[in-house]
Amino acid sequence: MSAPYLVIFDCDGTLVDSQDTILHGLQVGFQAADLPMPTRSEALSIVGLSLERAFLTLVGPENAHHVELMSNAYRASKVARRKEGLDFDPLYPGARELLDRLKARDDVLLGVATGKARRGVDHMVKVHEMHDLFVTVQTADTSPSKPHPDMVLRAMAETGSSAKATVMIGDTSFDMEMAKSAGVHALGVTWGYHSRERLEAAGADWVAGHFNDLYEGLNRLLDFDKEPA
């Protein structure tokens, strides 16, 4: 068999609806620095970036000295809430069905590329019983923040997949820009944090409005349902 197709998913805003837990963590961070919390839309606009870069984007360079404190407060809050069973991000409708459909194919490998820490991905996997689903997991612990292409490049290196056989699925312009920088297909979704217009402006090759549309988008980009010659 030729090199496998590689389908990489973002997490927050793509696989899981994490807006409430993210907003809670951001609120804790802003309280720790005694800074005013931005509006909901402003706060959620940074989802997808690594934590420090996200806080820096929200507070601006004049408050850069607060970023470490805010990030540490966010992380501590996450750990505490998980121990209490309060940190639960539900899967979007249709997510599990698509993942299982793709996993059942012997020519498709699944991966994750996220601004989360590995600890956050492990929590998602445990809560939603996704063990052995993803063969490559790229996080903010080992790669620069999106839109740097490192996560996608690492995923391809780990799986032996080519750029033309790889697609990045995400809900933000950061995901689309990362995909384009890595030379892979960019598939946007509209149920997360950035608009269709913003996804398309960032280079999305296809934009899905529901998980039911994603398989069609994948097939259009990868052509993996084509009958052999």
Rank of each mutant, 00 (worst) to 15 (best):
S2V: 00
S2Y: 00
A3I: 02
P4K: 03
V7A: 04
D10Y: 06
D10N: 04
C11R: 06
C11K: 11
C11S: 06
G13W: 15
L15F: 03
V16F: 15
Q19W: 09
D20C: 08
T21S: 14
L23Q: 03
L23P: 03
G29S: 11
G29T: 13
F30E: 14
Q31F: 10
Q31Y: 12
A32K: 12
A33K: 03
D34A: 12
L35K: 12
P36C: 10
P36W: 08
M37K: 13
P38V: 09
T39H: 07
R40Y: 11
S41R: 11
L44G: 02
S45G: 05
S45P: 08
S45E: 03
I46H: 04
I46R: 10
L49S: 02
F55M: 07
V59W: 02
P61S: 15
N63F: 10
V67W: 00
R75M: 05
V79W: 02
V79P: 00
K83S: 08
K83Y: 07
G85R: 12
D87V: 01
D87C: 02
D87M: 04
F88R: 14
L91F: 09
Y92D: 03
R96C: 07
E97T: 09
L102Y: 06
K103Q: 13
A104Q: 12
A104K: 05
R105C: 08
D106H: 11
L109H: 01
L109C: 06
L110S: 04
G111Q: 05
G111I: 07
T114S: 14
G115W: 01
A117T: 14
R119D: 15
R119M: 14
V121G: 04
D122M: 04
H123E: 14
M124F: 13
M124D: 14
V125W: 12
V127I: 11
E129A: 12
M130Y: 12
L133H: 11
F134S: 08
V135I: 08
V135F: 00
A140L: 08
D141F: 07
P144L: 08
H148G: 13
P149V: 03
M151V: 06
L153P: 00
R154D: 15
A155H: 11
A155P: 02
A157T: 12
E158M: 07
G160D: 01
G160R: 01
S161A: 14
S161F: 05
A163M: 13
A163I: 12
A163T: 14
K164E: 15
T166P: 15
V167C: 01
V167D: 02
M168Q: 02
M168K: 05
D175N: 04
E177C: 02
A179C: 06
K180E: 01
K180G: 01
S181W: 08
S181C: 05
G183W: 09
G183S: 06
H185T: 10
L187N: 01
T190G: 09
Y193C: 05
H194F: 03
S195Q: 07
E197R: 08
R198A: 15
E200V: 15
E200H: 07
E200L: 14
G203Q: 02
A204K: 05
W206C: 11
G209Q: 05
G209T: 04
H210S: 15
F211E: 11
L214P: 02
E216H: 10
G217K: 00
L218K: 11
L221Q: 09
L221R: 06
L221A: 05
D225V: 05
P228G: 09
A229L: 15
